[in-house]
Computed example of a mutant assay.
Amino acid sequence: MSLYRTELRRLTKRRFTRWMTLAGVLVLLAVLAGVFLTNHKIGPAERASAERQAEQQYQEQIRWAEQEKAACVQGQAAGTPKDGRFPPDCEMISPPPRDAFQAQWFLPSTFDFRKTFDDTLVPFTAILALVGFVVGASFVGAEWSTGGMMNLLLWRPKRLTVLLTKLAALLTGLLTLALTSAVVWTVGFWLVGTFRGTTAKTTSGAWQSFALTGLRGLLLVLTAATIGFALASLGRHTAMALGGAIALAVVGQFGVGILLSMANVKFVEAWLLPTYALAWMQKKVTLENWDSCNNVSFSGECKPETLDITWQHSSTLLIGGLVLLLGAALWTMRRRDIS
């Protein structure tokens, strides 16, 4: 029997894999349903309602200005002391112009597929990456903790072949899940745009941009699963990967962020992993340092210092971490005793 087929079947038959996959799919469906319910299709009725609300706000400002002006005139006639509420000249009190109240401000939220779908791929990737990390760690961690790895090596004594075949089966299963979910996610949001927004101007260029973002997301999901797999293999227990992830999130992220903020380090986000994950998905993240106003325009506007984190920076970090952890897992698999 093929080792690869055996491992793939073992992966799909595990209850933890099924429950974790189901949980991830339900979260994705909840996000999709939430977006559907909180958006509305804009039609003539909605635009007319927005125009009425804008006019109502304008009329309220006119009445408020008239009341304030009358109070100012009355106060000046009575000779009451000025408390800073009114200007020296009551004629200065006037309502804002009508064009300051735009109807589009009062329109309900609507889903523009071309402008928004690319952003929805970020939470989609984050949820699948979490599923992949946990499933990958559990898939190999359970083998070590229950003694299944030792029994398997009696049948196939080639250690690296066994470990890499397990990883290949994991990535194959996760790839199938990610591609299937991506199709459902895309169709779902296309329907959201059709019934709760617009799908206009979705050109072939937009679809190519979506595909490239989705490809980067897929690579990030597979990388997260591989890292979880490698950590659990290093520690020979699922808790090694989960504990390492929690320690990294609590100590390595929140702790470092707090310490750097207290030390007034510029661009604290540049030291945090989520920044690089976001830069990988969006191609570039621009960090701003508002404590610095070195470049001040003649109008007095503050232009903060900026730092660009690009997908090239993220790829270097991801590849380095992947090679380091997976290489260490393979090395320990070959060198350490199986007991």
Rank of each mutant, 00 (worst) to 15 (best):
G148D: 11
L175E: 06
A168R: 10
L179I: 11
E143W: 00
L175Y: 06
G147E: 07
T161P: 00
S181Y: 00
L175Q: 07
V162L: 09
K166G: 05
L160K: 09
T180S: 13
L164K: 04
A168T: 09
M149P: 07
R159D: 10
S145H: 10
L170W: 06
M150W: 10
M150I: 14
T180F: 12
E143S: 10
L174N: 03
L163R: 01
L170Q: 05
W144F: 13
V184L: 13
S181H: 01
W155K: 14
V183L: 13
K158Y: 07
L171W: 05
P157G: 07
A169G: 01
L160S: 14
V183R: 03
W185I: 00
S145L: 03
G148A: 12
T146S: 15
K158S: 13
N151A: 15
L154P: 02
L152H: 09
V184H: 03
T165V: 09
L163V: 10
L174K: 05
G148I: 08
L152A: 15
M150R: 15
W185P: 02
E143H: 05
A178Y: 12
T176I: 11
L160V: 12
L179K: 06
L163Q: 09
A168N: 02
T165L: 05
A182C: 06
A169I: 02
T176V: 10
L167T: 03
L167R: 06
G147A: 08
G173H: 02
W155R: 15
S145R: 12
E143P: 00
R156N: 12
L154S: 14
T180Q: 02
L171M: 07
L167G: 05
L171V: 04
L175T: 13
G148C: 07
A178W: 04
R159A: 09
W155V: 13
G148F: 07
L171C: 06
P157L: 08
R159V: 11
S145N: 07
S181A: 15
K166V: 01
L154C: 08
L153Q: 08
M150T: 14
M150Q: 15
A142D: 15
M149L: 15
L153S: 09
L177P: 03
L171D: 05
L154N: 15
V162G: 00
M149K: 03
L167S: 01
V184Y: 07
A182E: 03
L177V: 12
L154T: 14
S181F: 05
A178H: 08
V183S: 08
V184E: 06
T180A: 14
L152V: 13
E143G: 13
L152P: 08
L160A: 14
L171A: 06
T165H: 03
K158Q: 13
P157V: 08
N151D: 13
T176Y: 07
A168Y: 02
R156I: 06
A168F: 03
L170S: 07
G173P: 03
M149E: 09
W185Q: 04
R159Q: 08
L179P: 04
A182P: 02
E143V: 00
A142W: 06
S181V: 03
T165Q: 04
L164I: 07
